[in-house]
Design a protein around this nucleic acid. Structure first.
Length: 450
RNA sequence: GGCGUGUUCGUCUAUCGGUUAGGACACGGCCCUCUCAAGGCUGAAAGAUGGGUUCGAUUCCCAUACGCGCUACCA
């Protein structure tokens, strides 16, 4: 690349951040970071009727959550507020002066004209060649309508400049070198190139990336839960996994490695390995990557995230020592659950001993009259273990010895003990969970269940 | 309808004309096992169709089929 790379992501604030948009943003960001260029965030709030402040907040939050920081762009969600970078404001609605200067220029040179109260661009009547870094050279012939009249509106009769015009002018003013966007813009690129030609400046390099489809191959719309980035936050996916998964949709590294950190992605990503066919979204694979990323997450990061999601689920951990909370969460780490499901897995750690509610099915299965005698024996065995030796290994040994002495299987003791301590049939490793709970609380819970 | 674009296991993908067509997720079986998972071993699973070009096509070309996008005074 001769010039320093300058790319942008230009979402329109329509109420949510689309997962496809997030991937487009990611590819732009990775490209910029890989080449040491600049990544610019620009809010395309051209259609004033459809914009809202809340929608802008959602986009900025989504971008931050997924970890895509911008070198230039809004510093706050306020269109009239401060920005990062010297080519602001980074809200397209704020630069009407710019557009009308360009429109006047076009009109003066006879390349635009007024009709029916709108301004029309005098479009080329020739096929347009679109050089694309991913799709290759695309020669766009005129459609049947364009054969009749190729000119198109650049300023609506209500005085609003349209997207195509604004987009091109802003790319031009900001010195954008590469336009990386969804393939849905490929056909329209002819209009954009014609506009750049009209302004007498070279068009940026284009790279149209394939679209992301639903699992059934249909287009993702806002009705599809998977289409909205906020849902991934609420579900408790870790952002690194989302980034990793998104990167694999339409791109693959030369070495075939699929589990990749953000740093590894930056190092390997480039446009020459982006493919040309649309990809279907597979949340099972996303979940698998989520599991891989969480299991390798630094302990403090894992615990901090877990505590955050527990609070969202109404589980208050603040009354417990940090080391206890950390140990408790660690027992659930290798279960591969999403963070939103964590509460249902570890909430018993943060309840009073007499507040453990037995799930009906669990109680029926593991705390019936038949289990009372064995559980009492286990209780006696555990009472014999001193507090400083109340660890997983000792608990396991004691349980197995009790089972053997009673002539029953270990499972006949573990399940009642598990329900006594947690209220559920499913949970972290029993021995480790009891160790974390400690002698007093474990005994209190088992005693209560006998 | 017109214009554009795409098509390898169920899904995401690798393959720069010659491979037993590889990997990952998901799925099946076995092992391990205190539940759920995880882990180990293992199995099944693909070049849309039809023509060319070539000594040889998944790979290059054409056609057909099907998918997707665009075709707005939406972005």
């Amino acid at each position: 690349m001769s010039n320093p790379v300058r790319v942008r992501f230009a979402p329109s604030p329509t109420g949510y951040l689309h997962i496809g948009g997030a991937r487009t943003a990611l590819f732009n960001w990775l490209f910029a970071r890989h080449h040491g260029g600049k990544f610019i965030l620009r809010i395309e709030d051209t259609d004033t009727a459809r914009n809202s402040q809340a929608a802008i907040d959602v986009i900025l939050q989504g971008m931050r959550w997924i970890g895509l920081d911008w070198d230039e762009g809004p510093a706050t969600p306020d269109p009239k507020g401060p920005s990062i970078g010297d080519r602001g404001p980074y809200f397209q609605s704020q630069r009407n002066d710019l557009y009308f200067r360009r429109i006047a220029e076009l009109r003066d040179r006879g390349m635009a004209y007024d009709k029916d109260g709108a301004v029309f661009f005098r479009m080329t009547r020739e096929p347009v060649l679109i050089p694309d870094m991913i799709v290759g050279d695309v020669r766009r012939e005129l459609t049947d309508r364009e054969q009749v009249d190729p000119d198109w509106v650049i300023v609506r009769s209500d005085g609003q400049p349209v997207f195509h015009l604004v987009n091109v002018i802003y790319d031009l003013e900001m010195g954008i070198t590469h336009v990386i966007r969804g393939e849905d813009h490929l056909s329209n690129t002819a209009k954009h190139i014609a506009l750049f030609n009209a302004f007498g400046v070279p068009a940026p390099r284009y790279a149209h990336i394939p679209l992301i489809l639903n699992p059934d191959g249909s287009k993702m719309s806002k009705r599809d839960r998977g289409a909205i980035v906020t849902n991934y936050i609420d579900d408790g996916f870790t952002p690194d996994a989302v980034v990793n998964y998104l990167s694999l949709l339409g791109w693959s590294p030369a070495d075939g490695q699929e589990f990749l950190s953000v740093a590894e992605l930056v190092q390997r990503f480039d446009l020459d390995r982006v493919n040309r066919s649309p990809a279907r979204f597979d949340d099972k694979k996303l979940e698998a990557l989520h599991f891989e990323h969480t299991r390798r997450m630094a302990p403090d990061h894992f615990v901090r995230t877990g505590v955050h999601y527990l609070a969202q689920s109404g589980v208050d951990t603040s009354a417990f020592p940090a080391a206890y909370t950390a140990a408790a969460l660690e027992t659930a780490r290798d279960k591969g659950r999403l963070f939103k499901d964590l509460a249902g897995f570890v909430d018993f750690y943060f309840k009073a001993d007499d507040a453990i509610a037995y799930e009906p099915e669990a109680a029926a299965k593991a705390l019936g009259t038949a289990q009372r005698e064995p559980l009492a024996k286990l209780l006696a065995a555990y009472e014999a273990i001193p507090a400083d030796a109340f660890n997983a290994a000792a608990l396991e040994a004691a349980l197995k010895a009790t089972a053997a002495a009673a002539g029953i299987k270990a499972g006949a003791l573990t399940q009642p003990a598990r329900v006594a301590c947690t209220g559920r049939l499913v949970g972290p490793s029993l021995y480790h969970l009891m160790e974390v709970l400690g002698r007093d609380r474990t005994l209190a819970r088992v005693r209560r269940a006998v």
